[in-house]
Design a protein around this nucleic acid. Sequence first.
DNA 1: GTCTATATACGGATAGAC
DNA 2: GTCTATCCGTATATAGAC
Lengths: 189, 189
Amino acid sequence: MNTATRKEEIVAVASSLFKEKGYNAVSMRDIAQEMGIKAASLYNHISGKQEILSTLILYLARKFTSGMQAVIDSGGTPLDKIKEVIEMHIDITVNHSEALAALNNDWMHLENEDLSNFVRMREDYEDNFRKIIKQGIEEGDLKPRHPEVILFSILSTLRTLYLWYQKRGKLDVNVLKKDMVAVLLEGIV
Amino acid sequence: MNTATRKEEIVAVASSLFKEKGYNAVSMRDIAQEMGIKAASLYNHISGKQEILSTLILYLARKFTSGMQAVIDSGGTPLDKIKEVIEMHIDITVNHSEALAALNNDWMHLENEDLSNFVRMREDYEDNFRKIIKQGIEEGDLKPRHPEVILFSILSTLRTLYLWYQKRGKLDVNVLKKDMVAVLLEGIV
DNA sequence: GTCTATATACGGATAGAC
DNA sequence: GTCTATCCGTATATAGAC
């Protein structure tokens, strides 16, 4: 087992604990115990607790950023792009459901450039989504609702999907995508 | 300034700090400093940090519980009731936006009966909402989508409303209610 | 790569003076 | 009601043996 893999293992174990209790309530001893080693041994693989958090969060933030770029480059209508964003979020949620808790709840515990980089990526992401929505309204694809309400209604749902995707068990991903797109786009009435 | 008021002030100050950094990252010294006193002085008004958290969270949880009961007793159609739930969430968000962060993110740091009471209230709340949605589908008021997708789509949006209500500034509450009900019920296409 | 031992800081909370 | 002083537990992190 080489160092790279061991580091990934630490990050994975930490993700799961962060999801349960949050970054500040998880100690290095907790992480070490979960891996069957002592806390001091962790420092042979990572520089400290902060590195675990930033590795975790920035990895995911880059996934969303590149995913959004792919949507922008896809060349579809605004409506197509919104569907693609929803599907992207579901894909990332299914593949990284443990780590998404830290992204959502613990990003403010990042430090220095890690924090500012994350905040910038997040703002850019929202801006790109906002532009798609506004274009959809202009072109008449979307109803003329307040763009901010549309933006945060969809984003809130997608960002907290990780909380109940697992709880509800083996929902087929494609069924989930279809239902989610339908509910978010066409409403329920 | 009597004790009751002083305690409320502590809880209010703590709410704001919990929203910024989360329960575990806020120290009693932080709270005291924000109030211009020393940490030891806080203990003349509250028994400890835990009491601040539980006061805060259970107060809000009871608000949601009684609000849901009022909706159930209102005697409207399932669709009416869903609208009332949305409006109730918006009212509580507008009046308690600072404290909602702790309710959403720090409830797992409650202890003993406080924790179990909260979890039960939350489950009951979701169950009541789920029943309304299912009844709406049965009666043909709602489209026959997966009830869980509808439930969590609406709840996710409402529960994180506190995050951006302030940021977007002086949105009129009645306009917000109207837009939110429209987007969540009728969709955007 | 993991261990024991330890440095150092900070957390919640209490005692007792004013 | 607030203060100073302090107890005691736990946190991150490092040093050095194996």
